[in-house]
Amino acid sequence: MKVENAVFPQPEQAMAFFGGAEDGPFVMVNLLKFKPKAEYADGSDAHLTGAEAYARYGEEVRKLVEGLGGKIRYSGHVTGLLLGEVEELWDMVALAEYPSLEAFRNMAMSPQMAAIEHHRKAGLAGQLNIRTKPGLGF
């Protein structure tokens, strides 16, 4: 299995994801890896860690998610690995529930998201976003 963190999806990934069929609510699993130090394009806030810069983004995203009827279900720091093997662990896991693919798309393309994206870019070394649906009943 190849694992590759990214900060932004490739155009073909985004088109496939957002072009999928609408099938109601889903939970996005976010596996986050932070930069040691924040890297703002204008050089500001160089004293911040990547996690601190991302926290600025995270707080505003929470408001956006809740505003569209979603919810941040969980966020926590990764503290260990019991099973499997990865070259480097992620720093944090966050679970965000969205009411629909359309709602997520609207949020991702909104001016409000564009206004906070610089915090995400400054703090994030890479991530995986995994869309999930309720399944097997356990």
Rank of each mutant, 00 (worst) to 15 (best):
E66M: 14
A103T: 00
L101V: 03
T132W: 04
F104I: 06
G135C: 00
V93Q: 07
I116P: 04
S44H: 08
L64I: 13
E102I: 06
K71A: 11
G20E: 03
F138V: 12
S110T: 02
L82D: 14
A51M: 14
P9I: 01
V3W: 03
K133E: 04
L95P: 04
L81F: 08
K63N: 14
L31M: 11
K37E: 12
K35W: 00
P25H: 05
S110K: 03
H118N: 15
E66R: 13
F8S: 10
E87D: 12
E85W: 07
E117M: 15
E87F: 04
E66A: 15
S75T: 14
L128G: 02
L81K: 14
M28D: 01
T132H: 05
L95I: 11
R73Y: 08
V7C: 03
P9S: 00
A46I: 06
K63L: 15
Q127D: 02
L68V: 14
Q13V: 06
I72D: 09
Y40V: 06
K35Q: 07
R56W: 06
H118T: 12
I116F: 02
G43C: 08
Y57K: 08
E117L: 15
G126H: 05
L89V: 10
S110P: 03
A46D: 11
A108Q: 03
F34M: 02
P134E: 01
A103V: 00
A94T: 12
G19H: 02
F18M: 00
R73W: 10
H77M: 15
Q127T: 01
D23I: 00
M28W: 05
V27I: 13
K2S: 12
E87G: 12
E60D: 14
Y74S: 11
I130W: 00
M109K: 11
L82G: 13
R62Y: 11
L32A: 00
E22F: 01
E85Y: 08
E87Q: 07
K63S: 14
L136P: 13
V3P: 02
A51N: 10
G58S: 13
G69F: 06
F138M: 13
K37V: 10
T79I: 15
V3Q: 03
V78Y: 13
D45K: 10
S100H: 05
G126T: 01
F26L: 12
P11H: 05
K121R: 15
K37N: 05
K133A: 09
R56S: 11
V27Y: 01
G135K: 02
P11G: 01
A96C: 15
Y54W: 14
R62W: 09
G50A: 06
M109F: 08
G80D: 13
A125W: 00
F26K: 02
H77C: 15
G67V: 12
V3K: 05
N106R: 14
A38P: 01
T49Q: 10
G137K: 07
E102M: 04
G69A: 11
K33L: 02
E52S: 08
F34W: 01
E4C: 07
E4L: 09
